[in-house]
């Protein structure tokens, strides 16, 4: 058992690195750099949002109030909880508690899937209410508000869609880590993949923490 673990550790060190610390540092730094590019990626959309929100504050307010607040709030809670279980999974990985890692990751993944399910429900609702700008008979077609409301819903779909896509990737990563953990790939000396998967998961959560108020809450202070 001991020798097997040792064997796995040496396998885990790729040939271009000299030490495990160097490899871990490189992987972690790589993920941080990647997250910076992700920030810039979402940043372009946030810029577009800011511009149009400040140009058409009233229409954005009205359109915002058509979103389903309780559902959005529920999803926010689900994601916050998933971040907690993800953090617990990383901690367990650090301590070498294999079963705990697997269970926490499964719960994290379930939270992620719950989020996506709720999101899908919400989107279906939007389709039924003809709130989708790209389709025929958009609910405001022919009204003066049409163009600007379309901008709001376009941004809503583009940004939450992009976020959901990141969630899907995140669920895939967590699934992969669960399988690798089950196959004894990680140990307290080498749990970097769990660690960087966690970084990614938290990042995707944080993006939602910005999206939620920007889309759901902007008009709540005006007499509603």
């Amino acid at each position: 058992m001991d020798s097997e673990a040792h064997h796995l550790e040496t396998l885990a060190l790729r040939e271009q690195f000299d030490t495990e610390d160097q490899q871990k540092d490189a992987s972690t730094l790589g993920m941080w750099v990647f997250l910076i590019t992700e920030m810039m990626f979402f940043g372009g959309m946030f810029l577009a949002y800011t511009l149009y929100r400040s140009t058409y504050p009233q229409v954005f307010g009205v359109a915002s109030s058509s979103l389903n607040l309780p559902i959005g709030a529920t999803n926010t809670c689900v994601l916050l909880l998933s971040s907690f279980t993800m953090a617990m999974a990383v901690r367990s990985g650090q301590l070498g508690k294999k079963r705990a890692v697997i269970w926490f990751l499964i719960i994290t993944m379930l939270f992620g899937l719950t989020f996506l399910g709720i999101k899908a429900f919400e989107w279906t609702e939007k389709f039924q209410e003809h709130h989708v700008p790209a389709l025929a008979n958009f609910h405001l077609d022919g009204t003066p508000l049409q163009g600007q409301a379309k901008l709001f819903f376009s941004l809503y779909f583009a940004m939450t869609g992009l976020h959901a896509l990141h969630m899907v990737v995140g669920v895939g990563i967590v699934l992969f880590i669960i399988m690798e953990t089950a196959r004894n790939k990680y140990s307290p000396k080498y749990y970097t993949p769990i660690d960087i998967a966690g970084l990614y998961w938290h990042f995707v959560d944080v993006v939602w923490i910005f999206l939620f108020p920007l889309f759901y809450l902007i008009d709540r202070h005006i007499g509603r």
Partner: peptide, 13 residues
Amino acid sequence: FHIGIFDPALGGD
């Protein structure tokens, strides 16, 4: 999809 982000006719810029 012609969502209007850059289309002045729909209020885009």
